[in-house]
């Protein structure tokens, strides 16, 4: 067994050396993607080899190839789960929660009293384990995706609110004075100056909330769900020790989560092209 592990270590060291050379050479453009790619591929290869060489039971850790085969063979189930958990639960809650937080943020910004009162409360609530409300939401809104959307609303609301209010405070006095000299009213100042200036903060909040939304929707399914959904599948397949299916579900979740994050990040690039952080 100890001799069999030697090639694994050899590949690890070889890849590390290659990566050292590569990262010294690849400093710009698309080439910058190469070192992390090589790192990821190395990880997968070592995983596959370790599982095969050491005969690790598939109940403990299935090989990447087995997981890939499972993804291909159960595409229909995976698609149904993604629709149920991501598009119905997470996305609905994300849109409702972030939308409500954005509108509340504008209101809070308008009323200084609310800003001084609600913001500390919001900061406090952001640190709380809100996901613990999931069983209550399931009790109130039933087993289907409505309860998942509800917990997502609760989870994304305060991070988004705090970011909105911070963003609206991002303009300085000079800029607002300039708007006043133009005789701009509150609405015009908001739309033409303060919202654009708040955009980086808004997108920061939106990006943080993408991960929260997916996690909230999946975890809420542990407390009860119809017989579909990613969280449901993960918890039942773990019970049946079908870990290749669990890993397939995880891979899909990571993919969907990254795509969601990427979509928001791309929107940010397109909409805030003028911001210094985007001018690379």
């Amino acid at each position: 067994m100890s001799a069999a592990i030697v090639p694994v270590i050899a590949i690890w060291l070889g890849a590390w050396w290659a990566n050292t050379r590569l990262s010294a050479w690849a400093v710009s453009g698309w080439a910058r993607l190469l070192p992390p790619l090589l790192f990821g591929v190395t990880l997968l290869v070592i995983w596959e080899m370790t599982v095969r060489v050491l005969n690790v039971s598939p109940i403990l850790l299935p090989a990447p190839s087995a997981i890939g085969a499972r993804i291909v063979s159960s595409t229909a189930v995976l698609r149904e789960d993604v629709v149920q958990t991501f598009f119905r639960g997470a996305l609905t809650g994300y849109v409702l929660g972030c939308g409500a937080a954005f509108l509340t943020g504008i209101l809070v910004d308008r009323v200084p009293f609310l800003r001084r009162g609600l913001l500390p409360v919001g900061n406090f609530v952001s640190a709380l384990p809100i996901i613990g409300m999931a069983p209550i939401m399931v009790m109130w809104f039933g087993f289907d995706w409505h309860s998942k959307a509800a917990i997502v609303v609760l989870m994304v609301f305060f991070p988004m609110l705090v970011n909105t209010v911070q963003g609206l405070a991002a303009t300085d006095v000079m800029q607002r004075d300039l708007m006043r000299t133009y005789a701009a009213d509150y609405r015009q100042t908001l739309v033409k100056l303060r919202l654009p200036a708040a955009a980086p903060f808004l997108f920061n909040g939106l990006k943080i909330c993408t991960t929260l939304a997916l996690i909230g929707a999946i975890v809420a399914e542990f407390f009860g769900s119809p017989t579909k959904g990613m969280g449901f599948r993960i918890s039942t397949e773990v019970g049946r020790l079908a870990l290749d299916m669990v890993w397939a579900e995880i891979a899909v979740a990571a993919l969907v989560g990254s795509a969601f994050y990427g979509a928001v990040a791309l929107t940010e690039r397109v909409l805030t092209f003028w911001h210094p952080a985007q001018r690379i």
């Binding site: 773990v238 870990l243 995880i250 990571a254």
Partner: peptide
């Protein structure tokens, strides 16, 4: 991007 909370059951069981 891996929702670790979602795979908590698996980690615990394994």
């Amino acid at each position: 991007t891996i929702p670790i909370l979602a795979i908590a059951p698996m980690i615990i069981v394994v």
